[in-house]
């Protein structure tokens, strides 16, 4: 009888260990691991990892000390994205000769399934954006949605090749804090350009 009870208990214990294991994995995956030293609004606290167009694995905290200009696009996009990409290039051209500190232009894919590093690389080359200051990022579905939420970017899959999404260009300072957003397509980018220059040419 005693043995029987023991066996029963063992079974429960095994079951409970199993549960705990799942819980632990889930907790470590959660997006809220934070490092103490960052500003509490800093995106450098995000634990998510991303692939670049050069197939390197990076986190946002790897961009510490750089001004970041961020937009969310997808490469198979026919309507708004080419204009968003053009807006980014206009900003880059205007800013380039005015700053003496590093500025990175980051294009995050909202279609991570399609936009592999290879595809992002091809897109970068085709759009003459294959120099150091341009970074294309592919994340997981979950990281992507979470990052979009930081930017308050809305997006929705309409069909496997078509998304609708907000057209927002965001500027982060060297501490990873969101300091400026420009909404809309082909809008006057003066305020955005001024903000970047203010940050990167003190």
């Amino acid at each position: 009888m005693k043995n029987y009870i023991l066996l029963l208990l063992l079974l429960f214990v095994l079951f409970s260990c199993n549960n705990t294991a799942t819980d632990e994995t889930n907790t470590t995956n959660s997006a809220t691991e934070t490092a103490e030293e960052f500003d509490e609004m800093s995106i450098f606290q995000l634990p998510s990892t991303w692939k670049t167009q050069n197939n390197e694995t990076i986190e946002f905290k790897d961009f510490q000390g750089e001004v970041l200009v961020v937009v969310m696009i997808y490469t198979s996009c026919k309507a708004a994205c080419p204009r968003l990409v053009a807006d980014m290039r206009n900003i880059e051209t205007k800013v380039k000769s005015e700053v003496n500190q590093p500025v990175k232009y980051i294009l995050v894919s909202i279609d991570p399934e399609t936009d592999t590093p290879e595809r992002l690389k091809a897109f970068a080359i085709k759009n003459q954006m294959d120099t150091e200051q341009w970074v294309f990022l592919q994340g997981s579905d979950e990281n992507t949605r979470e990052f979009a939420n930081i930017l308050a970017v809305k997006y929705k899959e309409i069909s496997p090749i078509d998304f609708s999404h907000s057209n927002i260009i965001s500027v982060f300072n060297q501490q990873g804090v969101l300091v400026h957003q420009q909404e809309g397509l082909g809008v006057d980018n003066k305020a955005t350009v001024d903000k970047i220059i203010e940050l990167a040419a003190p």
Binding site: A79, A80, R145, A148, N149, A152, V153, K154, Y155, K156, I158, S164, H165, S166, N167, I168, E183, G184
Partner: peptide, 20 residues
């Protein structure tokens, strides 16, 4: 909801997004 941000209306819904 997980994907609450798939509802495309924000500050100025006539300008900054293309559908909905």
């Amino acid at each position: 909801t997980l994907d609450f941000n798939s509802i495309l209306i924000s500050g100025e819904s006539r300008k900054d997004v293309d559908t909905d």
